[in-house]
Design a protein around this nucleic acid. Sequence first.
DNA 1: AGCACTTCCTTAACATGTTAATTGTTGCTA
DNA 2: TAGCAACAATTAACATGTTAAGGAAGTGCT
Lengths: 145, 145
Amino acid sequence: MARTLPSTARSLPIALIRARESVMSPIRDMLSETGITEQQWRVLRVLAEFGRMDTKTLADRSSLLFPSLTRIAATLRDKGLVTQTRDDKDRRRQFIEITPGGLRIIKDYEPEAANIVAGFKETLGEEGYETLLDLLGKLDPGAQD
Amino acid sequence: MARTLPSTARSLPIALIRARESVMSPIRDMLSETGITEQQWRVLRVLAEFGRMDTKTLADRSSLLFPSLTRIAATLRDKGLVTQTRDDKDRRRQFIEITPGGLRIIKDYEPEAANIVAGFKETLGEEGYETLLDLLGKLDPGAQD
DNA sequence: AGCACTTCCTTAACATGTTAATTGTTGCTA
DNA sequence: TAGCAACAATTAACATGTTAAGGAAGTGCT
């Protein structure tokens, strides 16, 4: 067992933060002209991919905590990008669905986002990219691959 | 060039977020008993490793934005864990230094933090761990290795 | 029915992330 | 030397991360 922490220059948490920042920066730049945030984009993407779903599933797939999702859902609803409906069978639960307006944003910006991601894939090489995703997945016990 | 975004289940940004969350969760649990946050811990670690330094360098090495660092430094100062002094030659600039109290927190918790990190290293294997850090470094143009 | 217990979601409170505007200093230069 | 651009740090404003507490709706048991 290591008895000393690695230098902060070689720290895993810090490396993860910096990598995330590098990846998200151009995506944030792109999103700035849409008026939605990175997290709102993530929620819309999940809804666009899987369709209407309950809040719990949405939070899980978007990697958001419930309190965050509550606020984000309210914001997106006010912007007319999603709708919220109660489950009649279990009135505690709620379903969220993307609207045509929300879908439009995804369609409009998906190609540009894909290009940004493709750029990183080039940087790492196809193999490195896959390796990275696999290694990251191993860190996350909840990853179901 | 890819014309389609990867499924959110295979998204690089989301994988980075989840990995970071997995890694930080046990560290946050450990820190909860110290009353300092993950970011405050990061600042103290950098100061403990490199000693007194100006705010700009500190922000860079801690991977924090200036506004965040301003608040964090004020919090740490109020807790008596760091001191702030003006540069007499250039009164715009400021130096920050860790106090004995701050150093004590680092010393007290460093072994436990090291064990947590060692656990992740075991999960990935020595080789996987190094590969991961290298790949993450490639994503970050600012990484100086 | 009544009550405890769980579950889903929301609020609250505080810290940080992010961008933009502001303040205080310094340095340059007309 | 007055004026202005550049710089360091702070403040402001809003969104999110995080933990804890609260509220509403279901479930099970007596």
